[in-house]
Structures are given as C-alpha cells and as structure tokens.
C-alpha cells in the first residue's frame, strides 16, 4: 500500500511503487486533470505540483510522493468556484481542444505562487516545457498575464499555499 496526499486528502492505493504518479491520479483516484501526452517528460500535459514545484507526473514514481503534497488542477477550484487561473482561462476562453490546458494551468500556478509579477519573458520561459498543438498560446499567455497582474496567487503563497 502506498499513501499519498493529493489536494489535501490522503489516499492509500495498492499499486506497484514504480507506477508513475499520472496513472495513479487518473485511474486509482479518478482525477481527470493530469493527462497522458507523451509519457516522456516532453509535453507537460501531465503536469502536477509536488511541494509547489511542477513535475511531469508521467515520469514521477508514485512512491516519491511520500511525505510530499501533490496538487492537481482539481485542487485549484471547482466548477462552482473556479480558482483565479481557471477563471482567467474561462474569461478569455483560453481553450481549443483543451487537452493541454490543465497542464498549462498547473505550471502557471507554480510560477505565480513564486513570482508576484513575472515579466512576459519570464512567463514564456517558464511555460516553455508545455506544448499546445491547437495554437491556443496567445490566450494562455493572456490568461496568465491577467492573474500575474493581480498578484493574488503570490499573496496566497505567502500565507502558505493551501493544499
């Protein structure tokens, strides 16, 4: 049995400890946010936060989450009450197929918690690992900029990020 803490809740799952976190999130925990894209750390569709750092969950063994906090896009808000980045993506309709989008939101969250008002270049460099094939980049950047302008995720970070 492996114990892991995801979005503040602790779960015990019966899987091979080498199983990548992605498969546990999607199958054992039935969370849809993190997606399989490449399984090779090359696209970012599977991005989740582990102790506030973005990781490729397709490569990250579930056993390595021991003692760490995992956060997925589901933890940022709900359909009734979307989180700041989720709301910004909705407001700007920053989705085409949307398959990459949960990974985008998660990676952006990590930046905005750490840096209050990142520059355009910082945002682009930070988002570099995540691929979008639909070409939604302009809107994704716009949504991130909008939340960056408020600095609200950073303030939340100072209070100690909610898990």
């Amino acid at each position: 049995m492996i114990e892991l803490t995801v979005n503040g809740a602790t779960h015990r799952v019966d899987v091979d400890p080498a199983t990548p976190l992605l498969y546990v999130l999607r199958n054992e925990l039935a969370l849809n946010g993190a997606k399989f894209g490449c399984g090779m750390g090359q696209c970012g569709a599977c991005t989740v936060l582990v102790d506030d750092r973005p990781v490729f969950s397709c490569l990250y063994p579930v056993s390595s989450t021991a003692g760490r906090r995992v956060r997925t896009v589901e933890g940022f808000g709900t359909p009734e009450k979307p989180g700041p980045l989720q709301q910004a993506f909705i407001d700007r309709q920053a989705v085409q197929c949307g398959y990459c989008i949960a990974g985008m939101i998660v990676r952006a969250q990590a930046l905005l918690e750490r840096v209050a008002h990142p520059t355009e270049q910082q945002i682009r460099e930070h988002m570099n690992p995540n691929l979008c094939r639909c070409g939604t980049h302009m809107r994704i950047l716009d949504a991130i900029r909008a939340v960056a302008a408020t600095g609200e995720l950073h303030r939340a970070g100072e209070k100690g990020p909610a898990s």
């Binding site: 039935a30 849809n32 946010g33 896009v73 359909p79 979307p82």
Partner: peptide
C-alpha cells in the same frame, strides 16, 4: 454574440471531458 463555450468549464476544472476520461 460571443457566447461562452459550453465545454470549457469542465476542461479547466478537471471534469470528465474526453474519451480518455471514461472509466
């Protein structure tokens, strides 16, 4: 009119949105 897309809310909040999400 720029009616908001009906599929976006689920896609940004981790709702079931894709065939990949069927279980």
């Amino acid at each position: 009119k720029s009616v908001p897309r009906v599929d976006i809310l689920a896609k940004v909040t981790g709702g079931a949105a894709y065939v990949q999400d069927m279980r």
